[in-house]
Structures are given as C-alpha cells and as structure tokens.
C-alpha cells in the first residue's frame, strides 16, 4: 500500500515537472493552512492591541502587527480561508453552468452549437471586474454579489475551452462506435468524452481559480467584496496601504501570497492540461553542455533522458 502511494506521487512528480511540483506543494500547504487555520495561527486574527501597533517582526509577532496591533501572521492564515473560498465558489458555479452547456453544444453541434458558442462569446466580451462592480452597485458590497458576477464572467473562460475539446472528441469515430452499441448520450458524454477531456477541464479550472483569486482580491482591496474587519488578503493590503512607504511588511506579506498562489495555479493549470514548457529551450541547453563533455557521457545522458 505504501509503495503504491509512493509510486503515485513519483508519477505525479514526473508528469508535473519541477515547476509544477513546486506549485502543487505550495498550493497544498496553503490549502492545509486554510483548513487548519485555528491550529496554525499563533493568535486570534482579530485581537486588537493598540499598544503593540506597528511593531516589527518579533518572537511574539512573527510578521509584526498592523495599525490596530493585530498579528499579521494570524491574519494571513485566517485570510487564506476567505481568499480561497471566493474563487472556489466562482470556479464551482462557472464549471457547473459552463461544462454541461458546452457538452450539450458539442454533442448536438449544428445550430445548438452555434447558439451556445455565440452566447459564450458575448459573455466573454464582458469584463468580469466591471460586471462585479455593477453587481455591487445593485446589491451592495459583499463577497456574494462579487462571486455571482465573477461566476457569470468566468463561464465562457472555462466553457469555450471545454466546448472545443469536447467537439474534437465528439467527431471521433469511437463516439460513433459507442452510439452504434446503443449507449445513450449522457453515458457517452460523461463516461467517455468528459473523461478524455478531464485534464483540459481541470487545468483550465486551476488557471481560472488563480484569476478569480486575483479579481476578488482586487475587489476586496477596493472595498467592494470582503468587508474590513474580516481577515482577507485583499482587505489586508488595503488596510495598511497608507503606510506602505515606511512600513511595508503588512502590505507585502499578503501581496506576496496572492502573487505566489496565482502563479502556482497558472503553472499547475498549464501542466495539468498538457502544456509542456518550451522543450527546445531545454534541449538546446543540454546540447551545449553535452557538447563539452565526452561522447560516452552523451550516450549516458541520452539514456537517462
């Protein structure tokens, strides 16, 4: 059993590559941090202590405190909860609406495909942030209006890729062969088409998650999504924004976390959906290094690769 798990990890590492593995491990740690927040966080994230305001990193406060004397490390840990919850909802809703529509359009083709594809194009033309600002104007600031608006905006981002991939499967003769065996539409679509395009869907969802995280952080920074006392990375940046020049850690720490998460999700998403880092760059570098070594070593390198 243990060997089985280790083998799976080794295979995952091989298919993700070094950058993808680092990204996956980082994201796992962030996820773990969010789930285990009460255990990980050194203090209550909302505990104020004006006497300790603007203290630098110390034993008591690993990353120092903000203007209200709240522990920044603890706020980062708890902030991961709200900062990850929003994008999770956005991606879940966008997938839930977009994927069935895309599969439907891919199966029936013809005018169904044309109508669905044009609707996706139309929604794709709407900027997500603008839609979110509109939703906030209508329903007031808060996480939910922003999430709903972004979900709508992210449907085409996911569904257009799914539609193209599913369409390619649909016209494959194996789908015809299954239909001739008497399998129904739903079964062929779910068990065969969706399974074959799974990596594409998953990869695109990871990338969308990253962008949604960034969008929600921007909205929270502007005060349109998550509201002030709640710990959230975007809110934390805006809280300490004014003092950036003299006292940068409270702004930089959540900012770095946001950037690292988005970057990791983008790298991981690209790897999952089957994109490989430009291989010619690697072979060129290898060719240059091997040219300097002995011919025997070239053979070994070739065999090892």
């Amino acid at each position: 059993m243990r060997i089985h798990i280790l083998g799976r990890i080794a295979r995952a590492r091989a298919s993700l590559g070094p950058a993808g593995t680092v990204a996956a491990v980082f994201l796992l740690l962030v996820l773990l941090m969010a789930v285990l927040a009460p255990l990980v966080a050194p203090q209550d994230p909302n505990l104020q202590s004006l006497l300790d305001a603007y203290s630098g990193p110390s034993g008591a406060h690993l990353l120092g405190t903000d203007g209200l004397g709240r522990d920044i490390a603890s706020r980062l840990v708890y902030g991961s909860r709200t900062s990850l919850l929003g994008p999770t909802l956005v991606v879940a809703v966008a997938l839930g609406v977009g994927v069935p529509l895309a599969l439907l359009a891919a199966w029936y083709g013809g005018w169904v495909n044309a109508v669905v594809a044009r609707v996706f194009d139309l929604v794709y033309a709407l900027p997500g942030l603008l839609l979110a600002v509109l939703a906030v104007a209508l329903f007031g600031p808060g996480l939910m209006p922003a999430v709903v608006a972004l979900s709508i905006a992210y449907i085409p981002f996911l569904a257009r890729i799914v539609l193209a991939a599913a369409r390619q499967q649909r016209v494959s003769p194996y789908v015809d062969a299954l239909a001739v065996q008497g399998f129904g539409v739903v079964r062929i679509t779910v068990r065969h088409i969706l399974r074959n395009i799974g990596p594409v869907v998953l990869g695109q969802a990871a990338i969308a998650f990253g962008y949604a995280l960034l969008d929600l952080a921007s909205l929270s920074y502007l005060g349109l999504a998550v509201q002030a006392p709640t710990a959230d990375w975007g809110v934390m940046v805006s809280d300490s924004n004014a003092l950036l020049q003299g006292y940068w850690l409270p702004v930089l720490a959540p900012g770095v976390l946001i950037v690292c998460c988005v970057l990791s999700l983008t790298v991981l998403g690209a790897r999952i959906s089957g994109e490989r880092p430009q291989p010619y760059l690697r072979t060129r570098r290898r060719a240059r290094t091997t040219a300097r070594t002995q011919p025997a070593a070239v053979d070994q390198n070739g065999a090892a690769a």
Partner: peptide
C-alpha cells in the same frame, strides 16, 4: 434505450481508422 440496444445486437460496424475508433483512455 431498449430499442437502441436491440438494434446494436442486430448490426455492428468496424470503422476504417483504427487510430480514432477506440476511446484513448480505455
């Protein structure tokens, strides 16, 4: 579904292109 299945038992086909007529993940 029942009629589709019954027809499948009457008539089957093997396509020309062996590379695309099988589900790649099966």
């Amino acid at each position: 579904a029942a009629e589709r299945r019954a027809r499948a038992r009457e008539l089957q086909i093997v396509f020309q292109d062996p590379y695309t007529s099988l589900d790649p993940s099966q």
